[in-house]
Amino acid sequence: MKGFLLTLVAFAAIFIVLNAGYYGDWFQSKPAQYWTDFLKEKDDTLDQVGIMKQRYGVIYTICLKVKDIAAKKKVAHPVILFEPNSYYRDSLHIYATFHAPEPAVFYYYTGLEGVWTNSPNVNKANFLLRISKKGVSLDEIKNPQQLQQILNTYKKYPPTL
């Protein structure tokens, strides 16, 4: 009987903790939501790339697209130049949705080399990834003059995470 009463106390204690102030909000938005996600995910037929696309979002999908295009163009060593994130934030105001990946993360996603405008290897860049509200494009950089022109365009936007 006492064990039963203590069991009731245990349930009451759990109920109180789970609903106390911020705990209630957090529990609903995190562990309980994760459970709902689990119920969907357990029946998913997504492969590894599909799961990564879902998890990493649009940037990952863009990176994979870049990889495909670079492969189709059959460039021996494609090096992708990214626009600075401060440009997306201060000029295009799309940073909340889009941002350029770090070269390290881009390499993890695609196995391709990426550079930022301040990278020591920036002169090796032979493609420019442009992201705007209209869409995404991968433009070829044909010569060092064109590269320099591009770099000048972004001069006032320092690369940031």
Partner: peptide
């Protein structure tokens, strides 16, 4: 990985 530009990390 160490051949990549690791300036940001």
């Amino acid at each position: 990985f160490f051949n990549v530009d690791l300036w940001s990390t």
